[in-house]
Simulated assay, not measured.
Amino acid sequence: DELARFVTGRALDTLAHYRATREDLDTATAALTRQLAQQRAAVASLRRERSAAAAEVARLARLARQSGRATAARTRLTGVIVGTGDWLCPVAGPHAFSNDFGDPRPGGRLHQGVDILAPRGTPVVASVSGVVSDHPNALGGLGYFLAGSDGNTYYGAHLEGYAASGSVAKGTVVGYVGNTGDAAGGPPHLHFEIHPGGGAAVNPYPTLVRYC
């Protein structure tokens, strides 16, 4: 009987210890499960925040690109004034012009410059010092480029004839007003473009108004 009671007591103690240990394990497992769920929720929240932040960055980048394109478009249409006070009007004689930059042209083109009307043979001069290169072509007829010392590129077209080329000083005659190219049969004029920094053409009208 004593042995039976001893064995039974030991068994009960072991069972109680097992149950207590099992309860501790269950409690710890439940706590770990809750922590894991919280961590997963935190990770999911961070992923959502990162996704939202990436979407916001992309949205701001799109807005910046759109704003940049809009600003560039406005600059191209309204133009910028180049020159520092000593810039010269490219037509050295009586002339007239209007703001016809961007006007539609045949073939879906848009006018990339301003047409300066002047009597045939009126001298066309370099507005700034730089390097002049002749550029005859089908549309512009006798055209030229001036790589200006101010960092800008200038293009003129429809000349009656060429004059100086290569390195030129400001005011050097580079050609004469005419109506060659697709201007044949129309009034003599200088088609004149300004390309700031050698980039896309911008409206030269504000510059011409100031200096011509």
Rank of each mutant, 00 (worst) to 15 (best):
S45C: 15
G141K: 00
T78G: 08
P94V: 03
D103T: 15
D24R: 14
S167L: 09
G197D: 08
Q35E: 10
T78W: 09
N99C: 15
D24T: 08
A11F: 15
L32D: 07
L3I: 04
S133R: 11
G175I: 04
G121C: 04
H191L: 03
T21V: 07
F101C: 05
G93Q: 13
G178C: 10
S127D: 08
S127Q: 07
P123R: 02
G186Q: 08
A11N: 05
G181A: 11
A72S: 12
G166N: 07
G151Y: 00
T29M: 11
N137A: 11
A200G: 15
G171N: 00
R47E: 12
E49S: 11
R10T: 12
R105Q: 11
V202K: 11
Y144P: 04
Y18F: 12
G102F: 11
G113H: 14
S167E: 12
H189R: 10
G171Y: 06
R109Q: 02
N137G: 12
T21G: 12
G140S: 09
E56G: 03
D115G: 12
V114G: 03
T172L: 06
T21Y: 09
D26H: 14
G161R: 05
N99T: 09
G108E: 01
R210K: 03
R69S: 07
R5A: 06
R210V: 03
G148E: 07
G198D: 14
T122C: 04
Q112P: 10
T29Y: 07
G85W: 04
S51L: 09
T180R: 03
T172Q: 03
L25C: 12
D24W: 09
V125M: 05
R69V: 14
A28Y: 14
L36Y: 01
A30R: 15
G178A: 09
W87H: 11
D150R: 12
T29I: 10
E56V: 02
